[in-house]
């Protein structure tokens, strides 16, 4: 199908884009990569009266180091730009591992980090990864700017903490601590499809290989990224044994609340989540031990 009529405005600066959004509110949508927005417009599931195109704003797609390590990723940064950035991949191997699971190369050439996070698809990989990495989002409107923790940003399926006049402009990623291993895994019916279940795990080890920090966040098993880090706390203080990791997986299975779909029942999603948890925690642990 074809999209319904709308008014197209190409924003010339961030201030211009924000002032347009302040003026038009919910009648307007930001157009970044458009890889989720345009399909919904083609289906006429979305009929925004106004599109504010962000693609010609200089600097919104820049990635830069931030004070104290880590990186700040501009909202308009395309997936492929990060995929091709070896330095970024080295610093954030969890993101590098998740990126190839996001749709297909053609989509990743266009789709943006800020667009993905603002769209907040329950099956999307990046929201879970952002929560697992403890990312912070820089949010701006004409009236104010603020920081929002990734863990508070996703409030429901396709729903975020963004107000109608706000834009997510930058993502701040803290540098992983030394001796941190991570792993992203997902099961989808085909490469690039939405995940039946996916998991992002990170683990930091102390001098005796004891776990001192662990995060475990799922995608695709609820309306928002499902943060099961609390059930992984039992690993803390010891070198994780296979039994302990199995216990975490069982606790995580009990904690999540997948809804099931035509492609996978809730029980199957729960099963997959458990299997992936075991594999991802084990892999993150080994990577932390062996330094990659």
């Amino acid at each position: 199908m074809k999209p319904a009529s709308f008014r197209y405005i190409s924003a010339t600066s961030l201030e211009h884009a924000l002032s347009l959004k302040a003026e038009y509110g919910d009648d307007a949508k930001f157009l970044a990569g458009g890889q989720s927005l345009i399909p919904t417009m083609n289906f006429r599931l979305a009929r925004p009266a106004i599109l504010i195109d962000l693609n010609r704003i200089d600097g919104l797609g820049a990635t830069r180091p931030c004070d104290g390590g880590g990186a700040r990723v501009g909202a308009l940064t395309r997936y492929r730009t990060l995929e091709r950035d070896a330095g970024f991949a080295g610093m954030f191997p969890l993101i590098a591992e998740a990126l190839p699971h996001i749709a297909h190369p053609q989509i990743r050439n266009r789709g943006t980090i800020g667009g993905n996070l603002s769209h907040a698809d329950p099956a999307s990989e990046l929201p879970a990864v952002a929560v697992a990495l403890g990312a912070r989002f820089h949010v701006q409107s004409t009236k104010q700017q603020r920081w929002c923790d990734a863990s508070n940003f996703f409030v429901g399926g396709l729903t975020t903490d963004l107000q109608s006049d706000e834009m997510l402009v930058e993502v701040e990623l803290p540098a992983p601590k030394p001796r941190t291993g991570s792993c992203f895994m997902e099961i989808a019916r085909r490469r690039g499809d939405f995940a039946i279940a996916g998991v992002a795990a990170t683990m930091t080890l102390g001098e005796r290989d004891e776990c001192i920090h662990v995060r475990l966040v799922f995608c695709g098993v609820g309306e928002t990224p499902a943060d099961a880090s609390s059930v992984a706390e039992i690993l803390r203080g010891h070198a994780p044994t296979e039994q302990a990791i199995r216990d975490v997986a069982a606790a995580a299975q009990a904690m999540i609340d997948p809804s099931g779909s035509v492609h996978a029942t809730a029980d199957y999603q729960r099963h997959i989540a458990g299997v992936l948890t075991e594999r991802a925690l084990q892999t993150a642990y080994q990577r932390a031990r062996h330094g990659h």
Partner: peptide, 11 residues
Amino acid sequence: PVRSCLMFAVQ
């Protein structure tokens, strides 16, 4: 490579 159905001509 990009999907031409997921871009507006004006873009």
